[in-house]
Design a protein around this nucleic acid. Structure first.
Length: 114
RNA sequence: AGAGUUGGCCAGGCAACCGCGCUACCGAAAGGUAUCGAGGAAAGUCCGGGCUCCAUAGGGUAAAGCGCCAGGUAAUGCCUGGGGGGCGAAAGUCUACGGAAAGUGCAGCAGAAAAUAUACCGCCUAAGUGCCUUUCGGGGCGCCGGUAAGGUUGAAAUGGUGCGGUAAGAGCGCACCGCGUCGGCGGCAACGUUCGGCGGCAAGGUAAACCCCGCUUGGAGCAAGACCAAAUAGGGGGACAAUGGUGUGACCCGCACUGUUCCCGGGUAGGUUGCUUGAGGUAUGUGGUGACGCAUACCCUAGAUGAAUGGUUGUCCACGACAGAACCCGGCUUAUCGGCUAACUCUCACU
RNA sequence: GGCUGGGUAGCAAAGUGGUUAUGCUGCGGAUUGCAAAUCCGUCGACGGCGGUUCGAUUCCGCCCUCAGCCU
């Protein structure tokens, strides 16, 4: 299983802006919105935009980010050369961890067909 | 055994695999190895400090906060101990608790009257006086009056009880209780006083109304600030002149800037730093009723920056609540499944 | 992370230590052949919990909630 080091993340505002301005693909359900754009790096990068407005408590935000990272880590061999931004939606507040895993698994498999 | 009061502590454990962050070491690099890695509230941002910068933070005014006393502390609106008052049978607990004998304001409705003393229902007819009556003692109705004991209202009505006193009454007088004040005594003080004197009692409530008195407070906040530095676009320092204009985060005094000339390069995105050794912990001894102080020894115990402490599985049990550091401390407040523990009070039973 | 401002009927919006205006909406009635418009009447609220006060929407404290600013 692959690791998740710093170069596999979107770090700067410019990186985020590149994805937000012209995403190649979107994947949406009631829990998450994913924006994807291809890059030329040969590996995938993950960025998260988890807003305080929709997840009030810091514990919930950290939980969501951990689970997103954990699933991304497991899917890196299928995703080659894309930048992904994950955003949270309203229903995330009351969702169980299992639901998050199931939802994210669908998203990643959808992106895998890209 | 039951009921209750107050304080302290813990916050799932163990194992395996896969991951994340800092630091150290190895390596040319990729990476590897090892240690460590959220809380009692990390929260709310309600107070108090440290730290940093700013036109001065200086003087005056204003404004804000605090408010029984003493102590603790870096400091506090916090804590400890004590006093007064409220609640409780008790252990205990709550308490913004200075001043209304400086001034101003406020009090709807009700009530006679709401702060000035007044008189609605009442009570009285002694004194003065008018009329009537008389068995000549007096009696009745009035006027002028007296009174605040009783009744009524209200959140609040000008000490309480008793006796004397009186026309009826009244601190009018006396006794006791209460209150105020002076002295003594106790206490550092707040305050207490079963001590003595004086005062017939004045000074109604409200200051989380204005206010007065005392004390405290410059402003901003690590997104502070410092350093390295693309793009773009302007700046900084010295000297001289003017005293007009502008700014100064409450205002004034005051202070700074603006013009000309000479010299010098400046610093937004981004990055680095600030960033964790500290009013630090633990143990022992010691002073103190206590908060806490002192001494000695030992320990280093998160430091991220799109932001690390997680995932899966097994197992045990009491079946796991509230909840995630972002410059750092001390408090307060709020959230919280359950468990452990100490001291104390009351009731019942037995010995 | 830090710093500000606001919560009054279903909606909007004044107000103040002593029974909280007003407009639209809702309901009932009048008017009409029926409606609209108009007129009359009426229901419905001070975010929550404590404290100060005789009395709190107002004053004070804590909490909840909404919005904004600094990046």
């Amino acid at each position: 299983m692959a690791g998740f080091s710093k170069k596999m993340r979107l770090l700067t505002a410019a990186d985020f802006k590149r994805v937000f301005d012209a995403p190649d693909q979107r994947s949406v359900d009631h829990l998450f919105t994913l924006l994807v754009r291809k890059n030329d790096l040969g590996y995938s990068r993950l960025g998260m935009a988890i807003t305080k407005k929709r997840l009030k408590r810091a514990v919930d935000r950290n939980r969501a980010k951990r689970i997103i990272r954990e699933t991304f880590r497991g899917q890196q061999d299928k995703l080659v050369g894309v930048d992904v931004v994950v955003m949270n939606r309203n229903a995330l507040v009351n969702a169980e961890n299992i639901e998050l895993f199931q939802s994210l698994a669908k998203h990643w498999s959808r992106l895998g067909k890209l």
